[in-house]
Amino acid sequence: MLYDAAVIGAGPAGITAALYLVRAGAGTALIENSAPGGQILSTAEIENYPGFPHAVKGWELADLFDAHLAEYPVERLRGGVLSVRPAEGRLFHLDLEEGKGLDAKAVIVCSGAQHRKLGIPGEEEFSGRGVSYCAVCDGNFYRGRDVAVVGGGNSALEEALYLSRIVRKVYLIHRRDTFRGAQIFQDKLRAAENVEIVTECVPEEIRGGAAGMESVAVRSRRDGEIRVIAAEGIFIYVGMDPANGFLPEEVRRDPAGFVITDAEMNASIPGLFAAGDIRSKHCRQVCTAVGDGATAAAAALSYLEHWNA
């Protein structure tokens, strides 16, 4: 099957790109390996997307995005993309899971990023039995219990706040003594009675027994002292890795692996565009993903005009 454009990933960037493409009349396929919404599905509430003065739940916004796109004839394909490679006649060929594939004149990569793991003993062993990367999914199982949150960015601070309203006590563990996350979250966390901020400490081991996680051992970066924090859950927000494994090798990336584009979202191969969290940039928000998606679609449409000319 040949499409004008293939959009990889149905988070805010991909949904917006597909919306702009299909509204302009381009034959568009949108490929998603999980549920539409991307990372907003594992965000409890979104308070900084305009139009929702009282915040919106992540999954509600995902449903709204999805319902909006459902009004248009976009080909929705579910499954992972194994590879994207330049093919004959200026086309791209996409290999999909289960032996499926498709061709497209232009490709917009909106595959986003996934939570980085700590890579410490116990993390695998207690995955799903204490270790979580989604507070909104798993927070309820810790009602009245103690949990740890690891990280210092917006995600860590937001999710620590979210958990503080559910659990008995939250230990916020961060390797530095200052936070990268927004001041408004820092202020709220400092004001919360059941949040203990543990700075300049690095988790070393997640411990537990047959019933699941029981504690996390952290090492102080000041004096090397080990402290064992009793907690039945640990929520890990230590950054994101780009979902880029399927891209052609020649696509330029930054040292962390995010795709480098110009201001119009052109990647280093003509006809290949990137939008949203997969792109090398500083600000990763729903707003910026949506903006990237629209910009990438406009650039792709202009590319298609020349392609067809």
Binding site: S34, A35, W59, C134, C137
Partner: peptide
């Protein structure tokens, strides 16, 4: 599963 759980929605189908 639960309706508000994103990964659950992903694996549902």
């Amino acid at each position: 599963w639960a309706p508000w759980c994103g990964p659950c929605r992903g694996i549902g189908p």
